[in-house]
Design a protein around this nucleic acid. Structure first.
Length: 208
DNA sequence: ATATGGATGCAA
DNA sequence: TGCATCCATATT
């Protein structure tokens, strides 16, 4: 414990902030590499963080399920831009989805974050998720792309946010690579056969 | 199984 | 403009 007391600080989280170059690789590679990393939003008393246990890869023109499939439309243009920034969009009119842009500048790709295991700021997450109602069950706290955005306080204003800043950052996992299972992406109708969903094997990516 | 709800992209 | 579609969630 620090002498400053119980207020969580980013330094209390394991791992170093990953550089933007981490994301400047093939999307499928980044989707695997992100499993076990920690996403953190906010600082100090507002810190919320969770370990990534589920991702999905969305590629460029070759991937019919990707927003980038129809070229750099206003929404998808960010997927063609520099890697290492957040791509946040609204789905079904009520939920937000957090992605990280991949590939070199000029090539399209993004990794959707589908589930986290809470690491810090559980109370704040539960507060944001509850919204005045009953507190969510532990499994519903930040498991699911819409849920984790709500838990981390992420909305469309975070679109384009660098993942190496004070507001949003991704921390590398220490230790050996976790076991990863692959499966088809959830909820996609186009290219439903492509096994581009990555999940941490049970117990393989638990918090340090 | 179903209601919810807004943005997006394309056809017209 | 209109309209089908959409990487989801909470509740019956």
């Amino acid at each position: 414990m620090s002498a400053r007391g119980a207020v969580p600080a980013p330094a209390d989280l394991p791992g170093e902030v990953v550089p933007a170059a981490f994301f400047a690789r093939a999307t499928l590679e980044v989707a695997r590499a992100l499993i076990g990393c920690v996403i953190a939003t906010g600082r100090g008393a507002a810190l919320t963080a969770g370990r990534i246990v589920e991702t999905e890869a969305y590629l460029g023109e070759d991937d019919p399920a990707s927003h980038a499939a129809r070229g750099p439309t206003p929404r998808a243009a960010i997927m063609f831009g520099p890697p290492g920034v957040a791509y946040v969009y609204l789905i079904y009119g009520l939920h937000h989805c957090l992605n990280f842009v991949t590939e070199r500048d000029g090539a399209a790709g993004a990794v959707l974050i589908r589930a986290l295991v809470p690491v810090a700021g559980r109370a704040a997450m539960a507060r944001r998720r509850a919204g005045g109602g009953a507190p969510p069950s532990p499994s519903a706290l930040c498991s699911g792309p819409g849920r984790l955005c709500q838990a981390l306080g992420i909305d469309r204003s975070w679109n384009g946010e660098p993942a190496q800043g004070p507001r949003l950052r991704v921390l590398a996992r220490g230790g050996p690579p976790p076991g990863i299972a692959t499966s088809p992406r959830i909820g996609v109708r186009q290219a439903a056969d492509r096994p581009w969903r990555f999940t941490a094997l049970p117990g393989a990516a638990e918090p340090v």
